[in-house]
Design a protein around this nucleic acid. Structure first.
Length: 266
DNA sequence: ATGACGGATCTAATCCGA
């Protein structure tokens, strides 16, 4: 029995529904977690997903910005969203799905980017990001005795090998010590295992995002690993594979993030 | 300096991303 789950910051689900269809038809994950859908719930292309066999949706969107959606072949239960930092942003949705060997809770996150200046006093967006991380520390991987998976665009590259140049990015938002320490605390306090780094050695450079402003993204390869798959240790023990679809960055009209697929064997 | 782009929105210029 296998269970696969993908996470992808799609940067407008309506604009890129064609790419999503191509991805789902090729890889057929059981669950897909999207971030930055950039539309209200009513504008979510639910019909297109149903047509592909993904009939169950947990959508939490807003007009123009942010927005997350978890779609699934199997039914979803206990759908809920938490308004971290109480700003009314749509940055989290959770649900329960039967993974074949019992229920699994899936948390889908879009953590604030944090703006340009890595100083919470001078930059309100950075302050917001740090507060968001603080509130995530309350999330435990075995809440209510159900094992969990936490995925999404966490907008932080924690390891030195998660960025193209550790030295040059130490003062750049997404890789500053206050952010990487904060993310590590979220992970440790919740008991989460980093599934991607369990599968790909931490010594190896690995990215999931390349800026639109880099024309030769593939050759210059100035990427960052901003997208993450975490799980309860009990689930991580069943992890059989991680795929980072780097090629997706080269598709026509791509997102600046690529999909990551985690496969579990039960 | 990486930023040389790209998305959504009250279709034109502005905000936002990271």
């Amino acid at each position: 029995m296998t269970f696969s789950l993908a996470t992808w910051n799609i940067n407008s689900v309506r604009l890129r529904i064609g790419l999503v269809e191509e991805f789902l038809n090729t890889h057929q994950p059981d669950v897909l977690c999207l971030q930055e859908i950039k539309c209200e719930n009513a504008a979510f292309p639910a019909k297109a997903f149903r047509k592909m066999g993904y009939e169950h949706h947990a959508v939490h969107g807003q007009k123009g910005y942010h927005g997350v959606a978890t779609i699934s072949k199997a039914p979803l239960r206990e759908i809920a969203s938490t308004d971290y930092v109480s700003k009314g942003d749509t940055r989290h949705v959770e649900c329960l799905v039967d993974a074949g060997a019992g229920p699994v809770r899936v948390h889908n996150f879009y953590v604030p980017a944090g703006g340009d200046v890595p100083d919470p006093v001078k930059n309100e967006k950075f302050d917001h990001k740090l507060k968001f991380l603080d509130e995530m520390k309350g999330l435990h991987c075995d809440h209510a005795d159900v094992p969990s998976i936490l995925v999404g665009d966490l907008n932080i590259a924690p390891l030195e090998t998660d960025v193209w140049s550790h030295k040059q990015l130490l003062k750049v938002v997404s890789h500053t010590p206050i952010e990487t320490d904060g993310l590590n605390e979220v992970q440790a306090s919740g008991g989460w295992t980093d599934c991607i780094r369990q599968h790909v050695p931490p010594e190896e450079k690995l990215f999931t995002w390349w800026s639109y402003r880099s024309p030769n993204w593939n050759e210059s390869d100035k990427g960052r690993r901003l997208d993450h798959v975490w799980s309860s240790p009990s689930l991580a023990a069943k992890l059989s594979g991680i795929q980072v679809l780097r090629d997706a960055r080269g598709w026509e009209k791509p997102s600046d993030h690529v999909p990551v697929i985690a496969t579990f064997d039960f």
